[in-house]
């Protein structure tokens, strides 16, 4: 590789710093806000100098919001748990259903496979609000409204097409000869799927799972309409911070920090799988 000139390296560093500053500053600012009281947050001009306090986190974890006039109960930790439960279960169900389906669409070309795959993708085209109205009525009649089961089912609209279409591409990239070779070596169809197709599509499955998790985690509208207070995820639960007595910016900031923590941790963890990519050194053009 050619040695880069010093100027180029400096410019590169400056550009990177700008990008990082642009994207990370809001999060950094929220992090600062989460350690402040409403008064220090709202002072003009804003300052980075303040006395840090843990009251925001303490009130979120204990579940009591102490306003100037009254004490309000919030279920933030419950919401966090709901988010976690809904997202993890939805993605798990989505992977169990979506990965074998993706394999079928990629490798076992059958009649109408393209049409079915496209239909599944088209679930993502419809505006959620359009779907929600009839869905709410159905769910109430079926007794699925305000149940985890019903929510996870609806979440499949978000996660399944995503998983299906990402993973399908990775399966298509696996040369059929590699699978044939394993079959000829004496292994059955399912063993070959498990030992060859799944590991080779691993990075794709990880990427799809991660993206699906983030989409599920960030979902707002389905949960807002279909879930009541005790089943609401953080996205909906955060509305509780807008109280009659005012907006509790400090708690919102602390809530944001807590609610991005799981996705953040997951992304950091899954990163190495994402960049690993398909290593197909065994096959020449």
């Amino acid at each position: 590789m050619q040695q880069k000139s010093t100027l180029e390296q400096i410019l590169r560093g400056v550009a990177l710093a700008c990008v990082i500053f642009f994207f990370m500053f809001p999060i950094f600012w929220i992090l600062l806000m989460s350690f402040q009281t409403n008064e220090t947050i709202l002072r003009v001009p804003p300052s980075m100098v303040f006395e840090p306090t843990l009251t925001n986190y303490r009130s979120l974890i204990s579940g009591t919001l102490e306003g100037s006039t009254a004490t309000l109960e919030i279920k933030f930790m419950g919401n966090l748990w709901n988010s976690l439960f809904l997202s993890v279960t939805s993605v798990t169900v989505g992977l169990i259903l979506g990965v074998p389906a993706a394999y079928a669409f990629a490798k076992l070309k059958f009649r109408g496979s393209e049409d079915i795959a496209f239909t599944l993708l088209s679930f993502r085209f419809a505006p959620p609000l359009l779907v929600l109205l009839p869905l709410t009525i159905y769910f109430q009649q079926l007794g699925l409204a305000d149940t985890y089961f019903g929510l996870i089912w609806v979440y499949q609209l978000i996660v399944l097409p995503l998983i299906l279409w990402i993973v399908r591409g990775y399966f298509e990239d696996i040369p059929s000869d590699i699978e044939y070779a394993y079959r000829i070596a004496g292994h059955g169809f399912w063993t070959t799927f498990r030992k060859i197709a799944l590991p080779l599509a691993g990075p794709g499955i990880a990427a799809a799972g991660l993206l699906a998790f983030i989409f599920a985690w960030n979902n707002f509208i389905f949960a807002l309409v279909l879930a009541s207070a005790d089943k609401q995820p953080v996205t909906v639960g955060a509305l509780a911070f807008i109280t009659a007595a005012g907006i509790n910016y400090g708690q919102i900031a602390a809530g944001i920090m807590l609610s991005i923590a799981p996705t953040f941790a997951l992304a950091l963890y899954a990163q190495r799988y994402l960049v690993e990519g398909l290593s197909l050194g065994a096959v020449k053009g």
């Binding site: 590699i178 070779a181 079959r183 000829i184 070596a185 292994h187 059955g188 590991p199 096959v283 020449k284």
Partner: peptide, 30 residues
């Protein structure tokens, strides 16, 4: 008859080695 039941061995022109397995595990697969 499925490929695994035909008692054949095949060497592919493009080798078709399993990229995620060591040479040893490749050879061990049958």
């Amino acid at each position: 008859v499925e490929p695994e039941d035909r008692d054949v061995g095949m060497a592919f022109q493009n080798f078709a080695l399993f990229p995620h397995m060591s040479a040893e595990d490749n050879i061990a697969s049958p």
